[in-house]
Amino acid sequence: MTTPMKSWKLIALIALPAWILLGSGCAVISESECQAGLWYERGLEDGARGRSQGTVYKIAQKCHEYGVRTDTAAWMRGHEEGVERYCTPENGFVVGRRGRDYEGVCTGPTADLFLANYERGLAVYQAEQQYNALVNRYEDVEREIYRVEGALEEAETKEEARALRSQRRSLRREMRHLEGEMMLFGGFGAFNPLLFY
């Protein structure tokens, strides 16, 4: 079995384009925001959040529906400044660690550092998600064992009791397997992010 860190890095690199596409579907701007203008400030905010330049075209289209003209030049100036704040190596890790999308806005020498740290943070985030799924399954299995043991006490036939004991053995084997899997992440109730940096 490959280590969780290696498999999640591979998944992160494969799935990144899909996340970029999925992240583009949220509401762009409200009518009151269009009316307020503040295009430089809006660009600064969008850039600092790592939104791509394509955002301004969505904003312009939406504001046009409200009869408002967008100052795209002011938005672009703000966006450029916001992107500089966004594209730091430290923020790359934070964005990845939170499982946020990266829209490829970083360029120049900071881009590689940002992306390397983003991938590190994303690997930790995804490992934690995988760990949480293991914990949830473990708790489900534990509850199922209690249910089976209760049913075993009330079993009316040998065949029913035999089937329940077999089910309990299978569930206990699964629990041991899950415990082993969780050890790769630090242990039960002890996710260790340092294992995935």
Rank of each mutant, 00 (worst) to 15 (best):
M76F: 00
A60P: 01
V95G: 11
E90S: 03
A74M: 00
G104H: 00
V83A: 02
D101Q: 13
G82H: 05
C87K: 08
T107P: 03
Y66K: 03
F93V: 02
G104V: 01
E65L: 14
V94D: 13
G96Y: 01
F93S: 04
G82I: 01
G92I: 07
R85W: 12
Q61Y: 14
M76A: 04
Q61G: 14
G96L: 09
R100H: 05
W75R: 08
V83C: 02
D71E: 07
E84S: 07
M76D: 08
E84A: 11
V105W: 02
G99W: 06
G104R: 02
G99A: 12
V94A: 12
R97L: 04
V95K: 12
C87S: 05
G82T: 07
C63N: 02
G104T: 02
E90P: 01
R69M: 05
T72Q: 07
A60W: 04
C106V: 05
G104P: 00
C106F: 07
N91Q: 10
V105I: 04
E103I: 09
M76L: 10
G82E: 03
H79E: 12
R77C: 03
A74C: 03
V95F: 01
Y66F: 03
T88P: 03
E65M: 14
K62Q: 15
A74F: 04
A74K: 12
Y86A: 08
